[in-house]
Simulated assay, not measured.
Amino acid sequence: MHAPARFIAVLVFALVSGRVATAEDAPAPARKGALLFSDDFSAPAVGKAWRAQWPALAVVDGALNISQEKPQHSAVGMTAVGAKDVVIEFKFKLGASTGINAVCNDSGFKEGHGGHICRVSLSPRQIFLADDKERLSHEIEEMKKDPARKAEVAKLVAGRGKSIPMKLDPQRWYQMSIEIVGDVMSVSVDGKAVGFLKSSGIAHPMKSDFYFAVSGKDALFDDVKIWEAK
């Protein structure tokens, strides 16, 4: 990482965490290894590598359109990964959606909600990074049902998520990069580092799948690429 970009990352961390950050706080950039997945949606239909859940998914004007059609759940487009550490890049436009989640799962992990491991949530006003393995465990989900344990839950999930204030124009395309290496997940938008989260659940040994979950209509994606990170 060049010095200006590293400075931006450190400054953002300081603003979000409320403490003075040092150069050592900013994660080193990941090195891309083997290409695990790529789709530029140049074909007229959604490729077989994508699994639709609570659809609909469609290729529209050379981009992937994901729209929520059922109120019970966000629309999901999922593809296989099969690696521990990854670099994920894609272009996105929020469109008429209220939010996009870019999620890594482990289908073999049964101790947490939906096998979720970690996510980056995108909305018009913020980016949210989360360690889902630790904050959405079955034990914690059960504790949330008891209002008397609210403080206990808050203590257990402290540090498992981070909100980064950022205005995202719903009608503009953005380039997103997500790097997951060890217990650190860092994000960049349009080539600029905007923040990172360090939390133990991120280091889960397998990310079997990656998916987009869309709330609302007409979120667009393009040039999705996933590499194994070195």
Rank of each mutant, 00 (worst) to 15 (best):
Q126W: 00
D223P: 01
A34C: 07
I117G: 04
M185P: 03
F90D: 12
N65P: 05
F221Y: 15
G115F: 01
K150H: 06
H204E: 03
G18A: 09
K198N: 00
V86L: 02
V194T: 04
E228Q: 15
F13P: 04
C118K: 09
K133Q: 11
L168Q: 05
A26W: 13
E69K: 13
M78L: 15
I66G: 01
F212T: 02
L36R: 00
I226K: 10
A45T: 12
P27L: 00
K144V: 11
A34I: 10
H204D: 05
V60D: 10
S215P: 00
A52L: 04
D223I: 11
S121I: 01
L122G: 02
S186E: 10
I140V: 08
M78Y: 13
Q72W: 07
P124G: 06
R125A: 15
L220Y: 12
V120A: 15
D61S: 07
S74D: 14
A80Y: 13
W50Q: 03
R172I: 02
A58Q: 12
S188Y: 05
L220G: 09
I140Y: 00
D183A: 12
A151W: 04
A219Q: 07
P205G: 10
V194Y: 02
G62E: 05
G47Y: 00
D39P: 03
D190C: 09
G108W: 06
A75R: 00
M176Q: 04
V86K: 15
H2W: 13
L220N: 09
E134C: 10
G18Y: 07
P124K: 10
D222E: 07
A213G: 05
S137G: 05
G18C: 09
R19I: 05
V59K: 12
F196R: 04
A49L: 04
A203T: 11
S42G: 14
S188N: 10
D132I: 06
G18S: 10
P124I: 03
D218F: 02
A56M: 13
A56R: 14
H73D: 11
C118W: 10
G201C: 04
G33L: 06
K230D: 15
F13W: 13
F109T: 15
G62W: 03
V120G: 14
